[in-house]
Write a protein that binds this DNA or RNA. Structure first.
Lengths: 356, 356
DNA sequence: TTGTATGCGTTATCAA
DNA sequence: TTGATAACGCATACAA
């Protein structure tokens, strides 16, 4: 059997209550006693039993993180941010990956986190009204990324602003025929982000007096393959776009691949702008809308700390800024038929060529 | 206060012991009673308290996953594999990210997982003798990826074989001047994989009677930036390599970026081969050595299940195969001074240039 | 098949 | 400042 608090108490010649107090750094313990207890614990290499501790205290020392994918760049990045803050505060991180639909269902059916965590962080999950209520009914602080749940702490980016900036960037470069590769619009689970971004796209076009053409919106399912297919579709139009806004970098990557395979280039033939600033974006020289990913994770964890400390009464809502990162895949529109020439500015931001 | 087993017992008119048995599906409970208990539990929406349960039983229902990075593609992919198997078996996943050196140290200093998990999965962590022993002293089953710890379950790839295949591929294409971008060789924490791969590189060269030239080995620190710098260094040699083996795709990406920025191309100017088959490898048309990443995570989790079931007495060791994936960044060596001409196949998979 | 009683290792309340 | 002790919620020998 492992060494327990009783053993420490015996060795230090005090009661278990005092050991508990001394070890947790509670104030009402004399320095001498604390010293003695600490030494005894050290000598026996005593470790508290987390389950006994939580059983007695009601706290678990654990924060649940619920997300739809662990293995996508965005989410793993957010988790890293969460982890760093939680770890620094001695909180454990219980991971719940609800990617699979059955797992998702089962999760809300059985609520396995119910008595298992002190707080919850929910990443970008599309939730039904019923599911949101189920979470709230756990009666622990909840911090949500992306989605919005009444009474919960919240971190998000301004999707409308980011998408608008992207489209305006293209308009400023002279483009009028602008396509959009949209995300999971048809997804029955209903992520809301794609809707917001699409709306922003349409609004900005309207503001610029550019007529709306539904053919210019192609679904890309948030994947590389989807983005590739979407770009292929856009290129096949009788009047293809001169610029494309892909609402995720992943889809933009696919779009770029399609262009490459067709023997076309960005921005010479088509300008392409993405969203996220995925780690690969810099590699592919992709212009994009950057969002601070790890930072959002840190913010979520901090909100949880605030909530658990109980100081801050009201849940807060933080909107973090996005930023246009201009790289090499967007450029001024070319007049139809004009030879492919690039301006000096573009040359500067482009890889030099072996032939001058 | 939450509803407890006592409430269920009262409602079902049985003892708490019977409730416990019925709910866990133990055999010695009559069908009628079980029915009654299940209904009562359902009605009260009762959930067991995991901490009380583990305090009483000694099992935690949790598996700890310890890794050096959550936010790298490879690890997040492995975690996804682990998660899917654990989840299907109702085991929780406690994540421990030891990326930060202080966190690492603190972890082995305090062993916070000590009484917290039923088993441990350790991903590719460079461990000192002392640290390995600390883990083993937890006296729970341990499955290790990459590293090797005596008495532990183990999953790994054949790094020597994979690296040899990569170098042989280059030799088969006629290359004799072959560079290697190495990983974290100087890392004080001492990952072993880089050493094995480097050794394979040297061995294969020797077998092909190619003289060893230390200048052709450049450290890339397993990062994109490091790979970029390494390639720059290799190119600056008086007699630069015609082909380069980067021991991770990430470094190969950086290497390709350097080539692009120098106005060079793969494979026309330099052939490049990576290792991993990172999701971006296909995008960049990178030839590489593929390893099944998610699958390795699943295997680790399965080993843990075997260990916990207690059927399989001895820890097993599984080596999963790697596979050469030939894409567009490797090609036959060109005679020095030959004009850059590309074969039709290469043209198809490469971006065409604006100027013909 | 079912019930009784005890232990699991802490924390927290209360009294000293 | 310290100690005694009752929870905390469940699992499990043992008895019935």
């Amino acid at each position: 059997m492992a060494v327990s608090i009783i053993d420490v108490a015996r060795l230090a010649q005090v009661s278990t209550a005092t050991v508990s107090r001394a070890l947790r750094g509670l104030p009402n313990v004399s320095e001498a006693t604390r010293e003695r207890v600490l030494r005894a614990a050290e000598e026996l290499s005593y470790r508290v039993s987390p389950q006994a501790s939580s059983l007695a205290s009601g706290r678990t020392g654990t924060v649940g993180v619920v997300l739809p994918f662990v293995n996508r760049w965005f989410y793993s990045q957010v988790v890293a941010g969460i982890d760093s803050v939680l770890r620094a505060n001695d909180l454990d991180l219980l991971l719940y990956n609800l990617g699979d639909a059955r797992v998702h269902e089962r999760f809300f059916d059985r609520m396995p986190l119910r008595r298992r965590v002190d707080a919850l962080i929910v990443l970008n999950l599309p939730l039904s009204q019923r599911e949101a209520e189920a979470l709230v009914s756990m009666e622990v602080p909840i911090a949500v990324l992306g989605t919005r749940i009444h009474g919960c702490w919240q971190v998000s980016i301004d999707n409308a602003e980011g998408a608008s900036t992207a489209v305006r960037h293209l308009i400023n470069l002279g483009h009028r025929r602008i396509g959009m590769i949209t995300g999971a619009l048809g997804d029955p689970r209903g992520f809301t982000t794609p809707i917001v971004r699409q709306h922003a796209y349409r609004t900005v076009l309207a503001q610029a007096d550019i007529p709306y053409d539904p053919e210019l919106e192609a679904p890309g399912h948030l994947t590389i393959e989807g983005g590739a297919a979407a770009m292929a579709r856009l290129r096949s139009l009788s009047d293809p776009p001169t610029a494309v806004f892909a609402e995720s970098d992943q889809m933009a990557f696919g779009a770029l691949r399609t262009l490459t395979r067709m023997g076309l280039r960005a921005p010479d033939d088509v300008s392409v702008i993405g969203f996220d600033d995925h780690e690969t974006a810099e590699l592919l020289d992709l212009t994009t809308i950057a969002q601070p990913v790890t930072y959002q994770g840190e913010l979520l964890a901090r909100q949880i700390l605030d909530a658990l400390s109980g100081d801050e009464a009201e849940p807060t809502r933080v909107v973090v800024p996005t930023q246009l990162v201009v790289r090499g895949t967007t450029g001024r529109v070319r007049a139809a038929g004009t030879a492919r020439q690039r301006s000096p500015e573009q040359l500067a931001s482009q890889p030099s060529r072996p032939d001058q």
